[in-house]
């Protein structure tokens, strides 16, 4: 029998003597690595991932599992925390980015994990690692959106749709009968303006925002 007078502290509780003989090690999985977790933690929105205690409240209330098979925020977080990057890429890369940002997970999380932003950070991480082999719709939309905000200050709905379709090689679809008749109705009723509102002195703000991005 091992020496049983050493002190041992678990979760702030000091255990002495025989107790530690039958208190098993709290390493749940032998394959845990923390590099992946640390990378995600550094991304915008990823900061709170380590607070998760895997209760599953997020997945229980999530909008998507009913519509998207195997979509599971708790599961994505678990894979990151255990360092299972390869498994995430092979089995889940097409799922993570599908989050629709309804925020029910973040709202209900009992531990204060910003789950929606964590899932978004995981998707971003995969995109940054180029695991999709092409520009995804998600990245394309973020790019055209941020370009327009930074350059013009505001979003023009028609321009954003046009730029998104152009970037993803689908410009032809905008010329379909349905889209054109919708556009015509919007235009004739005055809901599409050819020269959207300009913001005075936006150039200066735009310049400053660009500096921030460098």
């Amino acid at each position: 029998m091992a020496e049983n007078t050493d002190k041992m502290v678990i979760d702030g509780v000091e255990l002495v003597g025989i107790w530690k003989e039958f208190m098993p090690s709290r390493i749940l999985y032998e394959d845990v690595t923390t590099e992946f977790l640390n990378e995600v933690k550094k991304l915008p929105g990823g900061e709170t991932i380590a607070k998760c205690y895997q209760c599953g409240t997020c997945t229980g209330g999530c909008t998507l599992p009913e519509f998207v098979d195997k979509f599971n925020p708790r599961g994505f977080i678990n894979l990151v925390r255990r360092g299972h990057y390869d498994l995430l890429v092979s089995d889940y890369k097409e799922l993570v980015w599908k989050c629709v940002s309804c925020n029910r997970c973040t709202h209900r999380c009992p531990k204060g994990v910003n789950t929606q932003e964590v899932v978004r950070a995981i998707a971003k991480f995969l995109e940054d690692r180029k695991v999709f082999g092409k520009l995804t719709n998600d990245e394309a939309f973020d790019e055209v959106f941020m370009d327009e905000v930074i350059n013009d200050g505001r979003i023009d709905e028609v321009k954003i749709v046009k730029d998104f379709y152009a970037k993803t090689g689908r410009l032809k679809e905008m010329m379909s009968g349905d889209q054109l008749s919708l556009g015509f109705k919007m235009f004739t009723s005055g809901r599409i303006k050819l020269f959207g509102g300009k913001i005075k002195d936006w150039k200066k703000v735009s310049q400053r925002l660009k500096e921030e991005l460098q």
Binding site: S101, M146, W202
Partner: peptide
């Protein structure tokens, strides 16, 4: 003279911008 709030796109792209806008 308002500008776009950055919506969901800014907060996934750049943390600082998502507060500045």
């Amino acid at each position: 003279d308002f500008n776009c709030c950055g919506a969901l796109e800014a907060k996934g792209s750049n943390e600082k911008l998502s507060y500045m806008l």
